[in-house]
Structure formats: structure tokens, C-alpha cells
Write a protein that binds this DNA or RNA. Structure first.
Length: 529
RNA sequence: GGGCCGUUAGCUCAGCUGGUAGAGCAGCAGACUCUUAAUCUGCGGGUCAAAGGUUCGAACCCUUUACGGCUCACCA
């Protein structure tokens, strides 16, 4: 955080942090929570919650507060549907109604299906600067760590039934109990609770024929349904802040009933919260839902966006606003926006009016950084130019970096990351017009009419003598003069050159393009004429 | 049916704790012997959905209305 303490930040993360301190403080430390059910590949929509909490955590810490950032893996939830993007569908189906922690991993050799989805995300989060403390709910439940919380729900079952009924169309049955049971024989939740002894004993019978009375302090079978589980854990961890998607935030939605249950049953004031909106995907097939079809994961986004730029997208957009993560040409614009924000940060204005704008941008920039804010501005190169450079070098990133003479050693790592993203984007998502590949010697010469053939030959001479010697502008003039001398139309001539170099009718702006390629590469291809 | 969000330039949006309406793109004009969604310079462009209220002052706060979207009332 910069030293402008006198100015109050208007960034949403700072405003939320202020609210948390105001409503929950002062405290020795604040607890900020996030979490999901790893019932399939964790997608970029789920990531919005994690990163939103992280940004608030950072804002709190910047204000000097101590923060515990917990991430709950709800891996004791039921395996309800087989996601379409998973292999071995039939085998997975045999595990329906069991807790996902018992479903085998079909993608690798992790301990379970749940663990596979969990690890896939946990491995990536450090790259984007997110370091929560993970809590595995299956472990908690199976160790009977929530015995008291579950008992509390049973003791207050009439209150809970009333709370839930307030927002239900049809009332819960009189014999309904606020617990669900995984059968100790078949592991499925196809059970019915048949009794409670007023203490720790819960009886159930299962569709498989098994029936039993278990002790909450010893069993791994009993868990709380979501709407009760949530407030129980607020109490357990003393949660001060937890956002949720809009599906939870309607009246009668789970936050609404959890708020009542938390207050009346568990004696915990509901945490500060906000609603975050969904994110869309643009320029790429696939839905965002984890239960249907193709899924866009954090890894997919990291493939084309640098970590800072991903954080920038989320930090720069208010959480309750829907926005799209683009894979199409917008990618270029996003990078340009980020670079502009970066230049702004390192170029603080003097006038008070400009300063106000600067502060907003600067705060977004700070929050976008994975670690510390760089002390010096990172090396910038227009993303379009970089895409051309990469293609000219056929994706050889080392060659691209070597060709830049004004980059400092400490700037290389970040720039290399950008190269990797840009190259991935060019190959996978750039429009056809944008892409090119140099011809090789093996391709041989292309057919040209007499005039163009002559022009190519003379271009080779000019390149030999002057490329890299004259300025780009003077070099260009010389090329154009030659073209005019031969009485060639520019469109015609350009086409011939592009044909000779990249087998296409069009390409990057020619003069600049020749400079990017360099004398050696150009001559190799022109000298065969 | 309830709740939440939105409605600002031709388009996409920013403007957020009330203080003279902004950006990008598109458009128009000019420049670059030039070609990617070319680039650079300049210009025009808005009753801030509507009506009322609070205020010295409202795009912003309050009330009502219209239109659009999402969501809950199964499960998580």
C-alpha cells in the first residue's frame, strides 16, 4: 500500500474491508471465508469467489488487520450428478448418492474424485497470489468434529423447521430432522432418520435394508444439510466475512435462512457479505457450469492471461457486475488496458483532479499484483507487436527476448510469461488474418509475374544493403521508390512480398514487418528468386 | 409471487460513499508514398429510462412507474 493514508480508497475491496472492521471489529483477527463443493472441475466462475475474498483479505491486511483466510472444500457433499466432461461415466454413475470424497479419481491417481478437483485448483492458486488455509469438510465430519454443532441442530430442530418453512412452498414434515445420514453399510444418503435419543444417538434406516443407531461423537455418517451446515460453520470458525453467488442471496435463499439459523440457533451474527455475479466466456466454446459439458478452468485462463492481468480483471470490476472473460480479440484490449493502468501507476500526476483518478487506478494496480508491487516499471511491449515478433521467430521465446536490447535482466521473467501467454493465444485463438508462418527453403519460390519478380529481386538488394542500417522510415522510402520506379501498384507489390514470405495475401505492416524479421530471415527467403 | 441487479454518446461500458457528464470503438476531417480491428492528430456527439421528492447543488440519496436480466420458493 502506498503512503497516501489521508485519502480514503473508494475501491470496493477497501470499502468492504472498512465495513468488516466497522461491523465486526475491533478484533484480534478477522476470519474471511470462501468455499465450494468440488463436485466437478473447479471453473473460473468459482474462482471469482476466491479472488474476491482474497482481495478483501488484502485490503484488511493493508489496513493493518490480522486476517485468517479460510477456504472450505465441501467434499462431504453428495455426488449428485456425473459431470459430462468426466471420463468413465458409467463407472462414476455407480457412485451416485455417495459422498464425493468416496468417489474414485478418474483423471489421475489422487486419493479421490474430490481430491483430484481440489488439488487441481490448489496447485494453481499460488500463481495468482492466493494463499488460503484449506479446510476439508469430509475430514471434519468423519472425525465427528461437528458432533456438538449437529446436536445443537437436533436440539433446536423445531426452530430450524420453522425458519426453513418461512421460505418454503410446502412445509417440512413434522418428523423431519435437520440431519442427513450416509448409510454405514452402503455409503449412500438413501436413508431416513428414524429417531433421536435427545442426546448423541441418531437412528436411521436405509433403502439398502440396513438400519442402525449411531453416536454423533463417534460416527462419520451424519452431516448437516447445507442450509444448516453453513451457519454452523460460521459459528465454528467465527466467520466475519463471506460473499456468495446470487443464487444464495435472494430472499428465501440459503444466506437468508442461514442468517436466521446462525443467529437463533448458533448465536452467531451473520458475517458481512456481498453478492457476486456470474462471469461469462467470450470467444470460446464451452459453458461455465461444472455439471454440463466443457468447462473453462483457471488453468485455461492462465494459459492466455498473465496472473497480474487475471487479478486486474477481477480487481477492476465490481463483484456484483457480470463481465466476460474473453478469448477472442478482446484479449489484446485487456492487455492494453492493463499496460495503460501500469503506466498510470508509475506516472503519478500533480493536479488534485488527476490525482483522484490516479488513485483509483493505482489501487487497482496494487491489488492486481501477485506479490509486491514492482519498484520499477516492468518492460512493456505492445501486445500486437509481441504477437508478430513471436510469429516471426516461430514461437521461439528465447530468440524474441534476445532480440530486445533494452530489457533489463530483472524484467525478463515477467516478460517471458507474457510471451508464453501471447504465443498460446496466437496459436489457439487468434483470428486467421492475424496469424502467419514464415515460408521455408523447402517450400521453394512462389510463382510471380515478371514485374513482381524484378521487384522482389530489387527488394532483396535493398534489404541486403539497408535493412537495419537506415531508419525504418528511410528504409521504407527506398522500398517505395523502387516500387514506383517499376510502375507497380502498392497492393500488387505487397501481395507478392507477403506471398514470398508467408504464403499469404496480407500480413503485418510491411516495413515494420521486415524489421521484425531481420535481414537474415528475409534474405533467406528472397534470395531464391 | 418475492427478492436482487440493470437502464448514461450510434455500440460496449466507466463514473460508488452528492460538487461543471467520461473512455474505448464506430462516425466525420486531416496526416503518414502504408496493409492487419492499421497508426497519429483534431472534431462532433448524451433531457444520465420516466415522473415526483430531499438538497445551495442529484447520473449518484428517497418514492413511484416502465422496460430488461438474474435469482429464490427442490438440492447444494
Amino acid at each position: 500500500m502506498s503512503d497516501n493514508i489521508k485519502v480514503k480508497s473508494t475501491h470496493w475491496a477497501d470499502i468492504t474491508a472498512d465495513k468488516i472492521i466497522r461491523e465486526r471489529g475491533p478484533k484480534e483477527h478477522f476470519t474471511c471465508a470462501s468455499g465450494i463443493t468440488p463436485s466437478g472441475t473447479v471453473h473460473i466462475g468459482n474462482f471469482r469467489e476466491i479472488i474476491s475474498v482474497e482481495l478483501v483479505v488484502r485490503a484488511l491486511r493493508d489496513k493493518g488487520e490480522k486476517v485468517r483466510f479460510i477456504y472450505s472444500w465441501d467434499d462431504y457433499d453428495v455426488f449428485r450428478k456425473v459431470p459430462k466432461n468426466m471420463p468413465q461415466q458409467e463407472m462414476l454413475e455407480t457412485y451416485l448418492r455417495k459422498p464425493i470424497v468416496l468417489v474414485p479419481d478418474v483423471l489421475g491417481d489422487e486419493e479421490s474424485y474430490a481430491a483430484a478437483n481440489e488439488k487441481a485448483l490448489e496447485r494453481l492458486l499460488p500463481q495468482v497470489g492466493v494463499f488460503p488455509e484449506y479446510i476439508y469438510q469430509a475430514k471434519r465430519y468423519r472425525n465427528s468434529e461437528y458432533a456438538e454443532g449437529i446436536k445443537m441442530a437436533l436440539v433446536h430442530q423445531d426452530d430450524i423447521r420453522r425458519q426453513l418453512n418461512e421460505s418454503r412452498t410446502s412445509d417440512l414434515a413434522a418428523e423431519w430432522m435437520p440431519v442427513s445420514v450416509f448409510c454405514t453399510s452402503c455409503d449412500r444418503d438413501t436413508t431416513k432418520v428414524t429417531g433421536w435419543d435427545g442426546d448423541y444417538g441418531v437412528s436411521f434406516e436405509c433403502e439398502c435394508g440396513h438400519s442402525e443407531t449411531v453416536d454423533l461423537r463417534k460416527t462419520s455418517a451424519v452431516k448437516l444439510p447445507w442450509r444448516i451446515d453453513w451457519p454452523m460453520r460460521w459459528k465454528e470458525e467465527d466467520v466475519d466475512f463471506e460473499p456468495a453467488g446470487k443464487d444464495h442471496h435472494s430472499e428465501g435463499g440459503s444466506f437468508d435462512t442461514a442468517r436466521k439459523t446462525g443467529k437463533e440457533v448458533y448465536g452467531h451474527e451473520p458475517p458481512v457479505t456481498f453478492q457476486y455475479d456470474f462471469i461469462r466466456i467470450k470467444g470460446r466454446g464451452g459453458k461455465i457450469s461444472s455439471s454440463t459439458g466443457e468447462v473453462i478452468s483457471l488453468q485455461d485462463v492462465l494459459d492466455i492471461y498473465q496472473p497480474e492481468v487475471i487479478r486486474y480483471l477481477f480487481a477492476g470490476t465490481r463483484p456484483n457486475t457480470e463481465f466476460a472473460i474473453s478469448f477472442d480479440l478482446d484479449v489484446l484490449k485487456i492487455y492494453e488496458d492493463y499496460d495503460k493502468c501500469e503506466r498510470t501507476y508509475f506516472n503519478k500526476p500533480d493536479s488534485p483532479k488527476a490525482l483522484k483518478k490516479w488513485e483509483k487506478q493505482a489501487r487497482i494496480y496494487e491489488l492486481s499484483q501477485v506479490g509486491e508491487v514492482p519498484s520499477e516499471m516492468p518492460y512493456q511491449m505492445q501486445i500486437r507487436h509481441l504477437c508478430n515478433l513471436l510469429q516471426a521467430q516461430s514461437g521461439d521465446i528465447d530468440a524474441v527476448i534476445a532480440s530486445i536490447d533494452d530489457i533489463k535482466p530483472e524484467q525478463v521473467e515477467r516478460f517471458r510469461q507474457r510471451c508464453e501467454c501471447a504465443w498460446e493465444w496466437v496459436r489457439e485463438f487468434a483470428p486467421e488474418d492475424f496469424r502467419f508462418a514464415l515460408r521455408t527453403m523447402e517450400d521453394g519460390p512462389v510463382e510471380l509475374d515478371e514485374k513482381n519478380l524484378e521487384a522482389i529481386k530489387r527488394l532483396a538488394v535493398i534489404v541486403e544493403e539497408d535493412l537495419g542500417v537506415l531508419t525504418e522510415k528511410d528504409f521504407g522510402t527506398k522500398v517505395y521508390d523502387m516500387m514506383k520506379e517499376l510502375g507497380l501498384e502498392s497492393a500488387d507489390f505487397f501481395t507478392a512480398v507477403y506471398q514470398a514470405l508467408i504464403s499469404r495475401e496480407k500480413g503485418p505492416r510491411l516495413i515494420n514487418f521486415l524489421h521484425i524479421l531481420g535481414k537474415e530471415k528475409v534474405l533467406t527467403l528472397l534470395k531464391i528468386y
